[in-house]
């Protein structure tokens, strides 16, 4: 604390509980580290040095218990869909879902003949932010995370969440 020592007198900060909690939540969007297809490569790139997601407090966690955000990055096959749902259910509240790329949004290139692909991950888990693109660039993912931050900041915590 060296540089800050004795620079300020004793202070009281006044804010609302909602604001404080939302601020801390939105500053630590820890996302669940799993990727399903090509979009995951862009997610990795977003997390790596050039785009550096940790600037926004977003860091990958290897367990659903520690994650706040699930980035569904890639093609959700029907076989994987059952697992995605289970992983989502294992995450602790509050939890958020980002659907990244055309596949997760709507089935993408498998829209017409994908006998094995779920046409949109929103059929099995509630999605907060959709990111279009095939694949979306890391900048798009970052924008998606920023939108999610905005959404988190506006959330009333003590009021009951509507289903």
């Amino acid at each position: 604390m060296g540089a800050l020592n004795h620079k300020f007198n004793e202070n009281i900060l006044i804010t609302s509980l909602d604001k404080l909690m939302n601020w801390s939540r939105s500053g630590s969007e820890w996302y669940f580290q799993f990727g399903l297809a090509c979009c995951a490569i862009e997610m990795m790139s977003a997390a790596a040095a050039r785009h550096d997601l940790e600037r926004f407090g977003a860091m990958p966690r290897s367990s659903p218990r520690q994650a706040d955000v699930m980035i569904v990055a890639g093609t959700v096959t029907l076989k994987m869909a059952t697992r995605v749902k289970r992983l989502y259910e294992q995450m602790a509240e509050p939890k958020y879902v980002i659907s990244m790329g055309s596949c997760a949004n709507s089935g993408g290139p498998y829209w017409q003949h994908g006998y094995h692909v779920l046409k949109g991950v929103d059929q099995i888990v509630p999605v907060d932010v959709y990111i279009p693109g095939c694949p979306p660039r890391p900048e798009a993912l970052i924008e998606g995370l920023l939108h999610l931050q905005k959404k988190m900041r506006e959330e009333p915590i003590l009021a009951k969440k509507e289903d």
């Binding site: 029907l78 076989k79 869909a81 059952t82 089935g107 829209w111 017409q112 006998y115 094995h116 779920l118 046409k119 059929q123 099995i124």
Partner: peptide, 28 residues
């Protein structure tokens, strides 16, 4: 495919099922 999958999807006379474990397969 999952063990409980029905049919063999790359056969040309395969008709996709409408649902798999409650998930809709055909496009909406």
């Amino acid at each position: 495919m999952e063990d409980d999958w029905e049919g063999f999807p790359l056969k040309k006379d395969y008709v996709p099922a409408e649902f798999y474990r409650g998930m809709r397969i055909e496009k909406v």
